[in-house]
């Protein structure tokens, strides 16, 4: 048997209650802890909460915030809200992807250092175009400043 540590899940079940309506909150706890949803989470929660694995998979794939793949140490979200879009957020996204060899399908670098995603709106429209690095907002970015940020992270790694 696997040696997967279920403590995080047990604690979350304890905190939110052993019921179907807690599923999303429990998955969020797992996502925060592992930064993705490991496969082991599914049968365990299915058993505990009495929900089918297929249903949990359905919930996990419905919501943007859940990832079934491991994410990088640095998660960069490029805002593509309207305000950022009209102030040219797409070139920033393209520059980041080019710098890291990523694409719309491949979101995380092989060394699990960087994940680049888009987000619908950070609500920081006045700082457009904005990106976040592990949830910290970086305002008025340009393709150049975004690439520079990556380079500095790489150097400090």
């Amino acid at each position: 048997m696997s040696t997967f540590d279920y403590t995080v899940l047990d604690n979350a079940i304890e905190q939110f209650g052993n019921k179907e309506s807690s599923l999303i909150s429990i998955l969020q706890s797992a996502q925060e802890h592992y930064r993705y949803l490991p496969k082991e989470v599914f049968p365990y929660l299915a058993e505990k909460l009495g929900i089918s694995e297929a249903k949990i998979y359905g919930v996990a794939t419905f919501y943007e915030n859940f990832s079934l793949e491991q994410k990088g140490k640095y998660v960069i979200k490029v805002c593509d809200g309207t305000a950022c879009h009209v102030r040219h957020s797409v070139p920033i996204l393209e520059a980041l992807r080019k710098e890291l060899g990523l694409s719309e399908e491949k979101k995380t670098t092989d060394d699990l250092m960087f994940t680049v995603e888009t987000v619908a709106c950070l609500g920081a429209c006045s700082s457009a175009p904005a990106i976040t690095l592990n949830n910290e907002i970086y305002p008025t970015m340009t393709p150049e400043s975004a690439v520079a940020l990556i380079k500095s992270l790489k150097e400090n790694a």
Binding site: K39, F42, S52, A54, K55, I56, Y57, G58, T61, F62
Partner: peptide, 28 residues
């Protein structure tokens, strides 16, 4: 109440799937 399949993903990517979109033979 077998729960072998369910809705997965969303929008135009939505599909009917088993858990992890695996073979139905390995599902409940």
């Amino acid at each position: 109440s077998v729960g072998a399949i369910d809705y997965a993903f969303r929008g135009s990517k939505m599909k009917i799937a088993t858990a992890f979109d695996g073979d139905i033979a390995n599902s409940p």
